[in-house]
């Protein structure tokens, strides 16, 4: 596919869609961090909990919000859904996790 055959996409709509996705992930991952702290998860089990919830949330987003038509709403499916926000979400998760872990223990 050359550049002339590529579909032109609305950048403002892509940004708004990503914003809604990130807000959803932020909420879920912070609560996941708090739950991990309550359960006193340590090392690998905590990281696995993050990965599991992150992937499940992404899948639910694709299934229920995008109705399995990701390219209709985002620019680059896998990159936008998983890799773009993973560092941000991971830092938020570690913050909530260590905070609730220290409070409880």
């Amino acid at each position: 596919m050359n550049n002339f055959e590529k579909q032109v996409k609305s950048q403002s709509n892509i940004i708004e869609n990503k914003k809604r996705y990130v807000t959803l992930l932020d909420k879920i991952i912070l609560i996941n961090g708090i739950v991990s702290g309550i359960l006193q998860l340590e090392s690998m089990s905590g990281f696995l909990s993050f990965i599991a919830v992150y992937l499940i949330s992404s899948f639910l987003f694709v299934a229920f919000i995008c109705k399995f038509r990701v390219s209709k709403y985002l620019e680059n499916s896998i990159g936008d859904l998983i890799f773009e926000h993973i560092v941000r979400e991971f830092l938020g998760y570690v913050m909530a996790w260590t905070f609730s872990y220290a409070l409880i223990n």
Binding site: Q7, V8, K9, S10, N13, I14, E16, N17, R20, I65, C66, K72, Y73, L74, E75
Partner: peptide
């Protein structure tokens, strides 16, 4: 729809 469509012909 829950999200905005991104292809330009649909976005308008």
């Amino acid at each position: 729809q829950y999200l905005k469509e991104t292809p330009f012909n649909k976005a308008t």
